[in-house]
Write a protein that binds this DNA or RNA. Structure first.
Length: 633
RNA sequence: GCCGGCGUAGCUCAAUGGUAGAGCACCUGUUUUGUAAACAGGCGGUUGCGGGUUCGAAUCCCAUCGCCGGCUCCA
């Protein structure tokens, strides 16, 4: 059963299709369900819908609504259904949709006026229920969401029970645009993306860098408490490293192409080697290497067609698409006793991934980003406890920042797939550990089969941006694969070598995406400890410039980020500028304040708070920073 | 990558085939100001980039780059 709102929106999508068929009788229908925020319908039509068409269609929809058409349900046999679909010339997609309906389920059509659609229901009783709707956009969408299929034209719209609710939603959409991190990023000078540098590559400007630096300092403190060790690794690694890890060529489509050593490049070009040959050689490995990996994994992980003689192998580097292989090598650089475990290696590691151009989005989807990454090497028994500590870390961060609107997803194996590596028994244990840890953490979570990584289950923290798109931020992943691929060991109490388990975790996910979401979360009104400019002193007349400068020095000496506005504008103009810059505290300084060694406080949250001694303010602000207090609403 | 839309000054926008313009920002001067915009002047553009059509292109056409909304993807 649909909720009343879903029913309304679903009916709106039928009325949309009704209107489209009136205006474009040759249109072929696919499907039109309700969504969280409205509805859509997918059409196959040679004519490309324009913004103008949208207005015409919407007007036609209003007519249909005004005709007060009743919605009728009609249950039919499968043969009758085929007949109805054919008689309406809609067999292109509807017959396929009909075939999806299981044999034991009833087949129904819904009819309103001249329109009839294969549909499980349910619907409103009369089309006149549709009083408040609006068509919003046109988009391409692959039939059945498969890019191998034809791309259809999707019309999105929204509908509400009343005109007031619709109007409120549209206002909300407008307001959301004002919090968009791309807009605030420019207005508050937080970051810049430059065409000449490259798509999806973030330039952190001074203000944004303060934000990022404060977050890094914050989490670094938490990591020290939890026994992590800080490491640094380079931005590139040899191709051999990623062949061992299995990331190349398996994920080559989402990586920047390899950097091939000049010597080998010159040799190949000199020998007239073709592009295709070079590509093959970049991916190839030696027979010895293949045998080694296959022995470790106990399977034909590297197939014979990837093996070439040593002198034909190409040497080069990858821009690192993840930090794990580097961290694995740090672990492997020394022997480990079970007494040393867990080994926790942390790094703000910058990685590069070749995201499709159409997916890039401000700071939330980029091609180069810095993960607040760490890899934990532990015993099987330590896995549950370590997962829980990782989750607690994420929770501390989200709580400190007042981010409560997120969901937790436990990603499990897809029971119907065999793409996973590692033994079933380990998977069972790891999945149970993830589930238990999520329960212990005490946050609502969903278990989603098929969302695991191929190397282990994971727990993701998902959060929405201002326009409702969901992004994965923090993540904790269990990995049985890399310890095998790299033959990692530790010496157990029994004096024998054992295989450690790896946990990958990044509480923020990436600094870029996290900051993007954080900017929208606060709408640019950052808590004092994160605000790039914490305090702005504004003078009333130049007579107090000297006092203002001396006061500024006191705030700066106390470690606060303060500035002084001595422009000759009137006070109102300076206040306005400070408000637009979203400065947490504006300190007004005039003759009166200078005489009393004080400043008049205007807070972003409360407005004018009256005059206070500078000494009091220094203590107050320092305390607010130290406690990482959230902004008052 | 795919479908559609959009690129004019730092920002918001105007000019629809006939001399590229306004407000804000910025700079200079005047003003010395009490909680969200003082006044005046000035600077700023090869209209994303490259071709084409035309006597003449910001405007029409082609190509390309980028951005936006979806779709697909996301180790």
């Amino acid at each position: 059963m649909m909720s009343p709102l879903e029913e309304l929106r679903h009916s709106a999508s039928h009325i949309l299709a009704t209107a489209v068929l009136r205006l474009f009788p040759e249109a072929k229908l696919d499907i039109g369900p309700p969504t969280d925020t409205g509805f859509y319908y997918d059409f196959d039509l040679d004519h490309k819908f324009t913004a103008d068409d949208l207005l015409k269609i919407e007007a036609e929809m209003k007519k249909v609504a005004d005709e007060n058409q009743p919605f009728y349900r009609k249950e039919v046999s499968r043969d009758e259904a085929v007949e109805i679909i054919k008689s309406r010339g809609q067999e292109r997609y509807k017959l396929g949709r009909l075939a999806d309906i299981p044999a034991d389920e009833k087949i129904s059509f819904y009819q309103n006026g001249e329109f009839m659609d294969l549909c499980a229901g349910t619907h409103v009783r009369y089309s006149s229920k549709l009083k408040a709707f609006k068509l919003l956009s046109i988009a391409g969408a692959y039939h059945r969401g498969d890019e191998k299929n034809k791309q259809l034209q999707r019309i999105y719209g929204t509908a509400f029970p009343t005109k007031d609710e619709l109007a409120a939603y549209l206002v909300q959409l407008e307001q959301a645009k004002l919090r968009d991190h791309r807009r605030l990023g420019r207005d508050l000078k937080l970051f810049h993306i430059d065409e000449d540098v490259g798509q999806g590559l973030i330039l952190w400007t001074p203000n944004g860098s303060i934000l990022r630096q404060e977050l890094q300092t914050f989490i670094s403190g938490e990591l020290r408490k939890q026994g992590y060790s800080q490491v640094f690794t380079p931005h590139i690694g040899s191709l051999a490293l990623y062949k061992t890890s299995g990331h190349f060529p398996y994920y080559k489509d989402s990586q920047f192409p390899p950097i091939v050593e000049r010597e080998f490049m010159d040799k190949l070009i000199g020998a007239g080697c073709s592009c295709a040959e070079m590509a093959n050689r970049v991916e190839a490995v030696s027979a010895h290497f293949a045998a080694q990996v296959n022995a470790r994994t106990g399977a034909e992980t590297i197939t014979a067609d990837r093996v070439l003689p040593d002198d034909q192998l190409l040497h080069g580097f990858m821009l690192k698409p993840m930090n794990c292989p580097h961290h694995v090598k740090i672990y492997a650089s020394q022997p480990h006793s079970y007494r040393d475990l867990p080994v926790r290696l942390a790094e703000f590691g910058t990685v590069y991934r070749w995201e499709q151009s159409g997916e890039l989005n401000g700071m939330t989807r980029v091609r180069g980003f810095t993960q607040d990454d760490a890899h934990l090497f532990c015993t099987e028994e330590q896995v549950p406890g370590e997962i829980l500590k990782c989750l607690e870390l994420v929770k501390i961060i989200l709580t400190t920042l007042g981010m409560a609107d997120y969901r937790v997803r436990v990603g499990l194996r897809d029971p119907d797939s065999n793409k996973y590596t590692g033994e079933a028994a380990n998977w069972d244990k790891a999945e149970a550990a993830c589930r238990d840890a999520a329960k212990t953490l005490g946050v609502p979570f969903t278990e989603e089969p098929g969302e695991a990584a191929f190397y282990g289950p994971k727990i993701d923290f998902m959060i929405r941006d201002v326009i409702g798109r969901e992004w994965q931020l923090g993540t904790v992943q269990v990995d049985y694969n890399l310890p095998v691929r790299f033959d990692l060991t530790y010496i157990g109490a029994d004096n024998a070598a054992h295989r450690p388990v790896m946990i990958h975790r990044a509480p923020f996910g990436s600094m870029e995406r996290f900051c993007g979401v954080l900017i929208e979360h606060f709408g640019g009104d950052f808590p004092l400890w994160l605000a790039p400019e914490q305090i702005r002193l504004v003078t009333i007349s130049e007579k107090v410039d000297d006092y203002a400068k001396a006061t500024l020095d006191q705030f700066v000496a106390a470690g606060l980020r303060a500035s002084l506005d001595t422009h000759s504008d009137k006070l109102g103009a300076k206040i306005r500028r400070a408000e637009l810059d979203k400065i947490p505290y504006t300190l007004v300084i005039g003759q009166k304040e200078a005489e009393l060694q004080s400043a008049s406080v205007r807070s972003r949250a409360k407005g004018d708070e009256g005059t206070h001694p500078v000494a009091t303010l220094l203590t107050r602000f320092a305390n607010e920073v130290a406690t990482r207090a959230l902004p008052e609403k």
